[in-house]
Design a protein around this nucleic acid. Structure first.
Length: 403
RNA sequence: GGGGAGAUUGCGGAGCGGUCAAACGCAUCAGACUGUAAAUCUGCCGGCAAAUGCCUUCGGAGGUUCGAAUCCUCCUCUCCCCA
């Protein structure tokens, strides 16, 4: 393996990172790697708590990809055991504990999605249940004995919950210890994580020292805002864009992000190079620019990354048709009706566009429902469907009704 | 182990025997305006029902009462203080 020179490596590694601690130590590790020809071990852990990877996760995965490009060894830890604890980071309450079966099912999907970004052949995947399931109680005590309660309570989120009189379960203290122990097992040289992970990553360094292993460098990355532009992207907040989503979804959701985060998206989750990134920054700063146009380019870029060039232009065209020209899209889900006559509220529920009839009626009363572009105002209207009819609910939900 | 406070509809938070499906704020959802941006404004915001209406809900289980989110008993959970 031929590694790129030090400067080149550091440039790519630094891109988009918040912390790189301690940087000099990383330089020494890279120098040693260059002279011995041994790649560095780069670690990132993922808890498969939800089955899908979204763009927020790709901030870290893309950084791993950078390390792969530089010739280093990426080790992805699937936290099947840690997921059962639930990372307390940035949470104000205890997370529900998952069963091992849930976690393993999620992990499978996770891996398929990882390799849309990472090189499968060059990635080692480990499950931390491999070692934690075999750990004896005396070993667990040995690990726990190295840290004090005061040290744990230094953590912002624990401190906040403690101050707010909220419960903290003892098992939550184990999360950082477990994550750190993973670093001992795989002897990581660098561990990546979001900024909120800093505490966990630092603990990992300390635990490695305690076990007589060269401590890892910690590299933190920003947390990506969701499509609301405010809160972190997360499935449970419903403000995410999944990498498995359809081109039109990725494009459309991208168009809904606030202007303030356009640059962040380019910087953190797109594959455009640094020159182009500077160009984008210039455009956004210019009063001549309509931010929407930059956002359209972002939408195309993201769709291209996961679905290819063709899909990205198609997604844009479809978007133009529906939201700019207010046309009905060519393709949409279809729903076959058993009989011709239905009440509108029933119809909406049957087609799966509302949870229940009350909600369906609210949508009609709110003016959010139309049939073949004609607004329906009576929530009890009897609808006769003689031929293909397009039912539209809200701004973006369409369904074709068939007899 | 002892003493005290508390658990309300997604979140926060009123309510203290009938007028409570439960104030108010936030979030969600829909509409207007726009660029599916922000800000702003409007409506909705447990379920069923065309409807006076009915059903489910205020940590859980019982009880008192014509009537309970509100009172009593037991249980579960949380927080605080003392040991």
């Amino acid at each position: 393996m031929i590694f790129p020179p030090l400067n080149e490596q550091m440039d790519l590694i630094r891109r988009g990172t918040v912390d790189l601690l301690p940087e000099e130590e990383l330089v020494r590790k890279i120098e040693r790697s260059l002279s011995t020809g041994q790649p560095l071990v780069i670690k990132q852990g993922f808890d498969p708590t939800a089955p899908d990877i979204h763009l927020g996760h790709t901030v870290g995965i893309r950084k791993l990809r950078h390390f792969q490009q530089l010739g280093h060894q990426v080790v992805v830890i699937i936290g099947d055991y840690t997921a059962m604890v639930g990372d307390p980071s940035e949470k104000n309450s205890t997370r529900p504990r998952l069963t091992h079966d849930d976690v393993m099912a999620h992990a499978k999907t996770y891996q398929e999605q990882f390799f849309k970004i990472l090189n499968r052949e060059k990635t080692i995947v480990r499950f931390n249940g491999d070692w934690f399931s075999k750990m004896r109680f005396d070993e667990i005590m040995g690990l726990a004995a190295r840290f004090t309660v005061a040290r744990m309570l230094e953590r912002d989120d624990f401190a906040r919950r403690y101050a707010a009189l909220l419960p903290i379960s003892i098992h939550e203290f184990f999360y950082p210890l477990m994550q750190g122990y993973d670093s001992v097992v795989i002897k990581s040289d660098v561990e990546l994580g979001a900024t909120e992970q800093k505490f966990n990553l630092v603990i990992g360094r300390q635990i490695q020292k305690e076990y007589g292993i060269e401590p890892q460098i910690i590299l933190t990355l920003p947390v990506l805002e969701g499509v609301d532009g405010k809160q972190r992207m997360s499935k449970s907040l419903g403000n995410y864009i999944g990498i498995d989503e359809a081109p039109t979804e990725i494009y459309g959701k991208t168009m809904s992000i606030p202007d303030e985060v356009i640059y962040r998206y380019f910087e953190l989750i797109s594959d455009i190079d640094s020159d182009e990134l500077k160009h984008i920054a210039g455009l956004l700063a210019s009063p001549q620019t309509n931010p929407r146009d930059v956002k359209k380019y972002l939408g195309r870029t993201l769709v291209r990354m996961y679905h290819g060039e063709l899909a990205s232009t198609e997604a844009e065209t479809a978007f133009e048709q529906i939201f700019v020209k207010k046309n009905i899209p060519d393709e949409m889900p279809e729903f076959k009706l058993e009989t011709q006559v239905h009440r509108i509220d029933d119809l909406i529920v049957m087609a799966g566009l509302a949870e229940n009839k009350s909600e369906a009626r609210r949508l009609v009363q709110g003016g959010g429902v139309s049939l073949n572009s004609e607004k329906v105002t009576d929530p009890y209207a009897e609808i006769t469907v003689r031929e293909e009819t397009v039912l539209k609910v809200g701004k973006r939900k369409f369904i074709r009704l068939l007899n």
